Amino acid sequence: MGRDNGPRVRVPEQRAPERAAVEEAGLYFSLLGPVRARRGEESLPSGSPQQRALLAALLLRGGRTATAAELIDAIWGEDPPSQALAAVRTYASRLRKTLGPLTLASDSGGYAMRIGPEALDLTVAQDRASDAEKARASGDRCRARTLLNEALGLWDGEALASVPGPYAEYQRSRLEEWRLP
């Protein structure tokens, strides 16, 4: 799986949250295909394409806080609408109602997702790929192949399918490079 050469779109990283990730019971998120959220077996509405872009941008930050300005840049790039800040706040409010108040936190003037690593398909895939590499390095090729197949099996088409914005486009390319060595 390939290497990340850094973002083409400027979305600065914030410091990781100091408190532990908070999980709402049974939440699971998919980025390796269409952006989806579910609670147990129930699919949750992820909203408009821009709202899914906000959700994806927050999930891809691994729990780090994103400011409203960073999210506006991620969703619309250099040409945001005049009401972009209000739109981000609306999307965040709708997501909070859907996901729960502990999952999408307002933090230091921005927003952050508070989920465990097993609640995101991308993190699970990365962990399986890492474990596959360790198994390969230790000579257990059968286990390595099984783990790598599990990682690749989490993909459901193009990553971040139908999510607009320059950040999603960059991440889509990055994830495809990671998927195809």
Rank of each mutant, 00 (worst) to 15 (best):
G6I: 10
W76V: 05
E78S: 15
P45L: 08
A68M: 10
I72N: 02
N5L: 10
L102P: 01
T98H: 09
A125I: 08
L148V: 00
S173T: 08
A37T: 05
S30N: 14
A168Y: 00
V35K: 05
A16Q: 11
P34A: 14
A53D: 02
A74Q: 01
S108W: 04
A84M: 03
P164D: 08
T67M: 00
I72M: 13
G110H: 06
P12G: 02
R143A: 13
V124A: 03
A168Q: 02
L32R: 09
T123Y: 07
K97L: 15
L120A: 06
E118L: 13
G100P: 04
R39M: 09
Y167I: 02
A168R: 00
S43V: 06
W76S: 07
D79F: 09
I115R: 10
L160R: 05
L148S: 09
R143Y: 01
P164S: 06
G153C: 04
S173H: 12
N5W: 07
L59S: 05
R8L: 13
G40Y: 00
G77K: 01
D107K: 15
A144H: 03
Q51K: 11
P117W: 08
E169G: 08
R15M: 14
L54F: 13
G63I: 02
A125M: 09
E176M: 12
S30G: 13
E23I: 06
R141A: 13
V163F: 01
R89D: 01
A53L: 05
A66D: 02
L102T: 12
L44R: 07
W76L: 04
P164T: 11
G165D: 05
A92C: 04
G6K: 09
R3T: 04
R15D: 15
R10A: 15
A57L: 06
L59T: 01
R172L: 00
R8M: 10
D79M: 02
V35A: 08
V163C: 02
S46M: 12
E169T: 14
R8S: 11
Y111K: 06
Y28T: 10
E133C: 02
S130K: 11
L55P: 02
A25S: 12
N149Y: 07
A86S: 11
R114S: 15
L32C: 09
R89W: 02
G100F: 15
V124I: 12
A57Y: 06
L180C: 04
P81Q: 01
L60S: 04
R174E: 10
L175A: 04
D156G: 03
A69S: 13
D4F: 11
L71Q: 00
C142K: 15
R96Y: 03
D79R: 14
K97S: 15
P166G: 14
L102H: 11
P49K: 00
A66N: 03
G157C: 01
